[in-house]
């Protein structure tokens, strides 16, 4: 009995990476900035987007690719702001793939937009491993989830360009015990270049600085 070894060195997720590259080429060609928004379910991604779209509409035209396991509830919330939204249902998968995003980018009407935000499936782990062709990742952490999340889920905080600490009004009113300084220090330790904005999509607190960052990145 003899054994034969075949050396391969083949990329396992090459199909996803090829589509991610194609997405990036398409976005660059059209001069559009693209963000991949990642968080746990319920952190407020859609609420942040809906408020942002309404507040910056005179400066930046935003389109949203919505990823959810089921329903088009989120796309409807975005469309209520008169922004275009394409809903992707993953039917159980815990992350968006670049193939799915590619189809959405061709439907969303890129020519009319300055910025595309991909709202990933609510999950702090899996979406981190799949590049979609974006310019950067935004991680959202709501204070109700606890200040230990950057330490416990380091990969996304290590990769993200921006951390949005949402529902900050709950800390200010004493409704949750969340050590803002600890969460920020842990995130900075993982990624010293990460930009952190403490915001409340509900009250609007802190949103202006986030908008300034977004407007700058969208080239406006």
């Amino acid at each position: 009995m003899t054994n034969k070894r075949v050396q391969l060195g083949r990329k396992i997720l090459s199909a996803n990476e090829e589509y991610a590259q194609e997405n990036q080429n398409l976005l660059r060609e059209k001069g559009k900035y693209c963000l991949n928004m990642i968080s746990s379910p319920g952190s407020g991604k859609t609420a942040i987007l809906a408020r942002t779209i309404s507040d910056v509409r005179d400066r930046v035209k935003i389109g949203v690719v919505e990823g959810d396991i089921q329903t088009d509830i989120d796309a409807e919330r975005i469309r209520a702001t008169n922004a275009p939204a394409i809903q992707i249902n993953t039917d159980g998968a815990c992350h968006l793939s670049a193939t799915q995003v590619n189809a959405a980018l061709h439907q969303i009407g890129l020519n009319e937009l300055d910025l595309v935000v991909i709202e990933n499936v609510g999950n702090l782990v899996c979406p981190t491993a799949f590049e979609l062709g974006e310019d950067g990742k935004v991680v959202v952490l709501s204070v109700a989830e606890g200040d230990d999340k950057p330490a416990k889920y380091p990969a996304i905080f290590s990769k993200a360009k921006v951390l949005l600490l949402n529902k900050i009004d709950l800390v200010n009113m004493g409704a949750v015990d969340f050590d803002v300084d600890k969460a920020m220090a842990d995130a900075k330790r993982l990624n010293k270049d990460i930009e952190i904005f403490c915001i409340s999509a509900k009250t609007g607190e802190g949103m202006a600085d986030w908008y300034d960052w977004l407007i700058r990145k969208a080239g406006k």
């Binding site: 034969k4 391969l8 060195g9």
Partner: peptide, 11 residues
């Protein structure tokens, strides 16, 4: 990256 490095076949 995620790589499939090698496959061993029994002949």
């Amino acid at each position: 990256p995620l790589l499939l490095e090698e496959i061993e076949f029994q002949t």
